[in-house]
């Protein structure tokens, strides 16, 4: 399958390990990513200020994809959620679509819709499938134990994610991890929010939320926490040192992106997969896999 790769703001600047591993794993599994140099921010950062601004900015990106006749594949939960939600809202509210198109007209753009938007994990789950991934694995990650973290906008609102995964009993990321041969750690705060959404308003509140999962995952003995969103990464990797100090957590929780884990199982090297950019090093995990 072919899709436009939507990088958003954070991944292409701060999370090149996620981007490079997503591109390499997609290529190995027969997904063709095309880049589009006109994409920009998805509009999510403006939603608290003006929902209509968010719709207009999201629609600009959707209109670009529509012109190319391709669906969008996003790496960030917030980008995937915002663009999918905007498409859903515009497709169901003709008056808002008309309003947005008046704003897009001076840019030479128009959104007719529908345009499909999926997270990379959803594309892996629905287009490639767990069985095909298992068949493509050349280096099963035996002996590796990792904890999945879905992130809120991956699962909710369920109006957008129904038919893919369930916010109550999520299973797709666990399934994708199991396909690599790694074991999935079971822990009670699986569905906890990372807190990233309030980091800009209250660092204390955001850190208090992230601390719950970090302490929980540290207790499982997992070799890493597996993420699929750069916002969650800001909290669990970027804020980890501060949080660990605040709550007296003496065990580090390595943080990795799912395509990095998948890439190892597909035989790619940790160097190719950008592991040198992981700030809390998954040394034990890499020792088990690469020796």
């Amino acid at each position: 399958m072919e899709a436009l790769l939507y990088l958003g703001c954070t991944v292409p600047v701060r999370n090149l390990n996620y981007e490079v591993s997503a591109r390499l794993t997609a290529e190995r599994l027969g997904i063709t990513f095309r880049d589009h140099e006109d994409f920009g921010c998805c509009g999510y950062p403006l939603k608290s200020l003006d929902v209509r601004d968010t719709l207009a900015i999201a629609a600009r990106n959707l209109a670009i994809a529509e012109r190319e006749g391709l669906e969008i594949c996003a790496l960030c939960n917030a980008c995937a959620g915002t663009l999918a939600e905007a498409a859903h809202v515009l497709d169901h509210h003709p008056e808002l679509k008309e309003e947005v198109n008046l704003r897009l007209a001076p840019l030479g753009l128009k959104y007719e819709g529908p345009v499909r938007v999926r997270h990379y994990m959803r594309v892996l789950w629905e287009e490639v499938g767990v069985e095909a991934i298992q068949r493509a694995v050349t280096r099963p990650l035996n002996g590796v134990l990792v904890a999945p973290h879905y992130g809120c906008h991956y699962l909710k609102p369920s109006e957008l994610t129904k038919g893919f995964d369930s916010p109550d009993v999520p299973k797709t990321l666990s399934g994708l991890i199991a396909a690599t041969g790694a074991q999935v750690a079971d822990y009670s705060s699986l569905k906890e929010c990372c807190g990233g959404g309030v980091l800009g308003v209250s660092e204390d509140v955001a850190n208090a939320l992230a601390a719950i999962k970090l302490a929980d995952v540290a207790g499982t003995g997992a070799h890493a926490l597996v993420l699929v969103c750069p916002f969650c990464n800001v909290m669990y990797e970027g804020q980890q040192k501060k949080i660990a100090k605040a709550i007296g957590l003496d065990r580090k929780v390595p943080v990795v992106y799912y395509p990095q884990v998948l890439g190892l199982a597909l035989g790619l090297s940790s160097e190719e997969l950008g592991f040198k950019l992981n700030r809390v090093k998954p040394s034990e995990l890499l020792n088990i896999v690469e020796g």
């Binding site: 490079v20 900015i57 600009r60």
Partner: peptide, 22 residues
């Protein structure tokens, strides 16, 4: 330059579109 070193394509900014929309 950092992106190119990792074999990733260059990225462009489009401030004119965002400025017009906002």
């Amino acid at each position: 330059e950092k992106r190119e070193k990792m074999g990733l394509p260059r990225i462009k900014e489009h401030p004119e579109d965002y400025d017009a929309l906002l």
